[in-house]
Design a protein around this nucleic acid. Structure first.
Lengths: 204, 204
DNA sequence: CCTACCGATCGGTAGG
DNA sequence: CCTACCGATCGGTAGG
C-alpha cells in the first residue's frame, strides 16, 4: 500500500460522490482497509483534496509553457495551446471535475493558491489573442472574453469525453483547435490557414 | 418568513460553501432562526437542493423554446439562442454554480430527471446546427461537439460575470451570439450577416 | 417559533 | 495494519 494508492482511490470517490460525500471510511473500504490505517499514508482528508486539486493544475501550466515554446507563429501557438488544453481535459477528467466542483471545500491558503494558478494559466491565452490582434491576424472585441470562452469551451470536453467513444482524443483536440481559431481569426485575412477538419489533421 | 426566504438563503449558502458544507443551522442563522424552525417551511435540506437545481433549468428550457419561435432563419435562431443562453447565465449565477457542482449530491430520482432536462435543453442546439448544415449555411464536422462547445462556452459566463463590470449583460450576450455563429458559419457564404461586435449590436 | 433531544456519522487519535 | 474510542456535528423529530 502506497500513498499514491490512497490518492487514486480518493480521486475516483471525490469525483463521483464529492468531497464531503466521501468519508475516509469509504476510501479505506475501496482499498480493503479500515479508516484509521489511511493516516499511515496521508496526513488528512483535506491534504488529499489539495494534492488532487493543485498537482494537475501545475502539470497543465507546464504543458502550456512547453507547447507555446514550439513556434512563434501566433496562429499556430493558439491552435497548439487549444490542442494541449483539450488533451489535458480528456486525460484528467476526474481531476478537472474535482478542481471545478470542490473550490468551496479547499481550505486556505491552498484555495488562494489555486485561484492564482488558474489566473496564471489564463494569462497566456489573453496575451496570445492580444498579440494576434496587434499583428492583424486576429480580431476580438475583448481578448479577455475570447480567452475565457476558449478555455471554458475546452474544459467542457472533460464532461463528456469517453475513450471508447466515436471520436479519439486527437480528433477532438484537432476539432477544438480549429474552433479556437474560428473564434478570433480575421475572416478576410489571406493568411488564414486551411482548416484541418477532423478527417485530415494538419499535424500529428 | 416564507418558504422563498429559506430557499433564497439556501441558494446563497449552497453556492458559496457547497451543499454538504452548509448546515441547516447555517441557513437558519442567515434568517435569524434556529434550525428546527426551518422545517415549518421546507420539507428537508435535500428538497431545497432539488428545487434550486430543477426550477431554473425548467425556466431555461422555456426561454429557449420561446426564443426559437421568434424566427425561422437558422442563423438568427442560433444567435438568439446563444444570447438567451448567456443572459440566463448572467442572471442565475448561483443556481448555475449549484447545478454544476452538486450533481453528485442530488438524490434519485431527481438526479435522473435533471440529466434528462439537460439533454432536452441540448437537443435543439444540435438540431439547429444540423439544419444549418443541411441548408448549406453552417459547416460542422460534428453538430454534437459544436453544440456542446457553444453551451459550455456560454455557461462559463456564470463564472466571471459581474453586473458592475465593464461589460453589460447585453454586450456579453451579443458577443457570445457572434462567437456562436463564428463556430459554424460557412466562411465563403455570401449570406453571412455582418457581425455586430459589441459597440453596434444588431438588435435590442 | 422555540428548547430539548435523538441516532448516526464524521475526521482523527491512542495505543499497540 | 488493527480495535477502541473521542468530541463534534449533522439532519431531523417531539412536544409545546
Amino acid at each position: 500500500m502506497r500513498a499514491d494508492d490512497v490518492r487514486e482511490a480518493a480521486l475516483t470517490l471525490f469525483a463521483t460522490r464529492g468531497y464531503h460525500g466521501t468519508s475516509m471510511k469509504d476510501i479505506a473500504a475501496a482499498l480493503g482497509l479500515r479508516a484509521p490505517s489511511l493516516y499511515n499514508h496521508v496526513e488528512s482528508k483535506q491534504s488529499l483534496l489539495q494534492e488532487i486539486m493543485l498537482g494537475p493544475l501545475e502539470t497543465l501550466i507546464r504543458e502550456q509553457q512547453a507547447v507555446l515554446a514550439t513556434t512563434n507563429d501566433v496562429t499556430e501557438q493558439l491552435r497548439r495551446a487549444m490542442e494541449a488544453h483539450v488533451r489535458f481535459h480528456t486525460r484528467f477528467q476526474r481531476q478537472v471535475r474535482i478542481g471545478n466542483n470542490e473550490i468551496a471545500n479547499i481550505e486556505e491558503p491552498a484555495r488562494t493558491h489555486l485561484l492564482e494558478l488558474r489566473r496564471r494559466y489564463a494569462q497566456p491565452w489573453i496575451d496570445l489573442i492580444e498579440r494576434g490582434v496587434a499583428e492583424g491576424r486576429f480580431e476580438s472585441p475583448s481578448p479577455h472574453l475570447s480567452a475565457f470562452a476558449m478555455i471554458e469551451m475546452g474544459m467542457g470536453v472533460s464532461l463528456w469525453f469517453r475513450a471508447e467513444g466515436a471520436l479519439s482524443e486527437s480528433q477532438v483536440a484537432y476539432y477544438y483547435g480549429d474552433m479556437a481559431l474560428r473564434l478570433v481569426l480575421t475572416r478576410t485575412g489571406g493568411d488564414t490557414p486551411a482548416r484541418a477538419g477532423m478527417s485530415s489533421p494538419s499535424h500529428a
